[in-house]
Design a protein around this nucleic acid. Sequence first.
DNA 1: AAATTCATCAACCGCCAGTCA
DNA 2: CTGACTGGCGGTTGATGAATT
Length: 206
Amino acid sequence: MAPKNDGSAKKVMNKGAWTEEEDQKLSQYIEIHGAKRWTTVAVKAGLNRCGKSCRLRWLNYLRPNIKRGNISDAEEDLILRLHKLLGNRWSLIAGRLPGRTDNEIKNYWNSHLSKKINHKEKALEVTTSKETMPEKLLDIVQGDIEDAKEIGNSKANFDANGLFDFSAADASHGLEWVDKLLGSYSLESVDNFLELEEDPWITDNR
DNA sequence: AAATTCATCAACCGCCAGTCA
DNA sequence: CTGACTGGCGGTTGATGAATT
């Protein structure tokens, strides 16, 4: 349908795939003025896009030091471990994988890893573990760290084999912090872990 | 070779929380 | 205090190319 042109209609924004020209405009503007106030960026860069769209494009594709594709075994292993810890908190997971974006990890999870997990879980259902763990860690594994803070100590079921799956032991380089965290399961550790280093290209400049 | 199905991933949508006037 | 605005996030969609029939 053609857009209204009675003066009262909002300006119709571009949607869909970005063109090379749009990418250039956005990159050039941010290089000079920085990535702040996305609606302003969109307007001043001469892009007929909404601020949200510009932000997404910059963070996922144009930002420097972005890695694209070829997720290594070590990265995959890390994603799996972090997902066990954090659940679908893609931005947090991405924060621990330099150069990777939440969108890429989310896509990778949905297209690759979730299938692997389902496969594995079905196999594990046959041999459900009855080991115990502190309830706090159980909640963390379920991706509910915030709520876990308010829960007292008690027993709960724990599938330690699933959590500490070191079958790819030699792929754990750089994962010591994960092992340490899982080994100690202190909430302080989780909180410290969640306080990520600032990336100047991501940090909100509001 | 054409039609159909499947897999991937870029981008959008809606919700929510923080900020500011 | 409140409401509008803005950005961040996770869920979802849709376009595209690859694989299969």
